[in-house]
C-alpha cells in the first residue's frame, strides 16, 4: 500500500511538473474561445495558428470551450469576468445570446463575403463559413432517389431514414426549422412529421450516432450536411454516398466570429478576424467540411461532391420563441 501511494505521488508530481511546463502566462496573449472541433489536434487551428503567429507576431491562447452551444453558455456564465478576447464559431441560431457581450467590427473583408450570409447588420458577428443541412443517401441501396422533402414521406422509404432529435442536436434542430421554413407550422408540417414516424428507422441523439448508423448500413438515408460525401471521396475513394439536393431549398447554418466587449487586445483581435476572413478561409472550410463565405475562392475537387444548394434558409431568422414552440409541437406529434 505504501508503495502504491508513493507511486501515486510520483505520478502525480510528474503530471504536475509536465502540466506546469505547458502553462504560460496568458496575459499578453490573444485569448480565443473556439468550439472543440476547431481547436482540436486535427482541427483547422493546428495549421492556421502557427501561420498567424508567425505572420503577426501575436501569440494566441486558444481555448476549446466545448461544442458551439457550450461555448456560448460559457461566455454567458462568465459574463464580464471572461478572459476571452475573441469568440469563434457562434452559429447564427444562437447569435442573439452573445450579442450583449460583443463589440462591433467593420472588417475590410466584409466586402468579399456573400451578402446573404451577413446575418448581423451591426457586424458584431462576422460569418466565416457556413454549412447546409441535407439528406445524404446510399446510392447503392436500390431505392429510387428522393427529389424533395415531400418524397421522403412516401411509403417506400419506410424505416429507411435516420433522423436526429431536435432536442439534443443542432442538426436535428436544423431539420425542424427546415421543415418549418418550407411547410410553415400548420397541417403540412404536421403531416410531414407524422409520415416520419413510419419512415424514420430511428431518431438519434446526435449527428455522430446518426451518421454512424448510416455508414454501418442500418438505413440508406440520413440527415447530415451537404458536404458529408467529401470525406468518403477523399478518404475512401467512393462516390457511393451522395448528397440529395432539393429544389425546395435547404436550411443553412452560418458560423461566425466576433470580438468580446471590453477586450484589452482590440487591435490583435481585429487582425485575427481579418486573418480568418482572408488567408484562413480555405483551410477552415476544408477542415470543417463547410463552405467558405468568400464565394470567389476555388474549392478542392472533392467539394464537387458537396453541391451547394441554390436556395438557403438562415436558421438565425427564426425567432427563439418560434423555435421553442416548434419543439413542443414536434414532441407532441412524435409522441401522440
Amino acid at each position: 500500500m505504501k508503495k502504491a501511494m508513493l507511486l501515486a505521488l510520483v505520478l502525480f508530481a510528474a503530471t504536475l511538473i509536465s502540466a506546469e511546463g505547458l502553462t504560460e502566462s496568458t496575459d499578453d496573449m490573444l485569448t480565443v474561445y473556439a468550439y472543440d472541433s476547431f481547436s482540436g489536434d486535427w482541427g483547422p487551428a493546428a495549421k492556421l495558428l502557427p501561420a498567424f503567429e508567425e505572420e503577426t507576431g501575436i501569440k494566441v491562447n486558444l481555448v476549446g470551450a466545448g461544442d458551439a452551444v457550450e461555448m456560448v453558455s460559457r461566455l454567458e456564465l462568465e459574463g464580464e469576468n471572461t478572459e476571452a478576447d475573441v469568440i469563434l464559431g457562434v452559429t447564427d441560431d444562437f447569435a442573439y445570446r452573445v450579442y450583449p457581450y460583443l463589440e462591433a467590427y467593420d472588417s475590410p473583408y466584409l466586402d468579399v463575403i456573400d451578402e446573404e450570409l451577413v446575418f448581423d447588420p451591426e457586424h458584431r458577428l462576422l460569418p466565416f463559413d457556413y454549412g447546409t443541412f441535407a439528406f445524404v443517401w446510399d446510392s447503392e441501396c436500390g431505392l429510387e432517389k428522393p427529389q424533395s422533402l415531400a418524397d421522403l414521406t412516401k411509403p417506400e422509404y419506410r424505416n429507411k431514414i435516420i433522423l436526429i432529435d431536435p432536442r439534443t442536436s443542432s442538426v436535428g434542430l436544423g431539420l425542424l426549422l427546415w421543415t418549418y421554413n418550407i411547410y410553415g407550422d400548420g397541417e403540412e408540417f404536421e403531416a410531414w412529421w407524422r409520415a416520419m414516424k413510419d419512415n424514420a428507422l430511428t431518431i438519434a441523439d446526435g449527428w455522430s450516432s446518426a451518421y454512424g448508423l448510416f455508414t454501418e448500413g442500418e438505413a440508406p438515408i440520413v440527415l447530415s450536411y451537404t458536404t458529408s460525401p467529401v470525406y468518403h471521396v477523399m478518404n475512401e475513394n467512393t462516390t457511393r454516398y451522395q448528397t440529395l439536393v432539393f429544389q425546395e431549398g435547404h436550411e443553412a447554418q452560418i458560423e461566425a466570429i466576433g470580438i468580446v466587449k471590453g477586450t484589452e487586445h482590440r487591435a490583435e483581435a481585429e487582425k485575427f478576424i481579418d486573418f480568418i476572413l482572408s488567408e484562413g478561409q480555405l483551410d477552415t472550410a476544408i477542415a470543417n467540411s463547410m463552405y467558405p463565405v468568400n464565394t470567389s475562392l476555388e474549392l478542392p475537387d472533392a467539394f464537387n461532391y458537396a453541391p451547394q444548394p441554390e436556395k438557403i434558409f438562415r436558421s438565425g431568422d427564426t425567432s427563439p420563441e418560434t423555435v421553442e414552440a416548434l419543439q413542443e409541437k414536434w414532441i407532441s406529434i412524435m409522441t401522440e
Partner: peptide, 16 residues
C-alpha cells in the same frame, strides 16, 4: 435510450 429506442416517446429526464 435515444439511439436504440428510436422514438422520441422514449425520453428520460436526462434528455429533457
Amino acid at each position: 435510450i435515444l439511439v436504440l429506442g428510436g422514438n422520441p416517446a422514449y425520453s428520460t429526464f436526462e434528455t429533457e
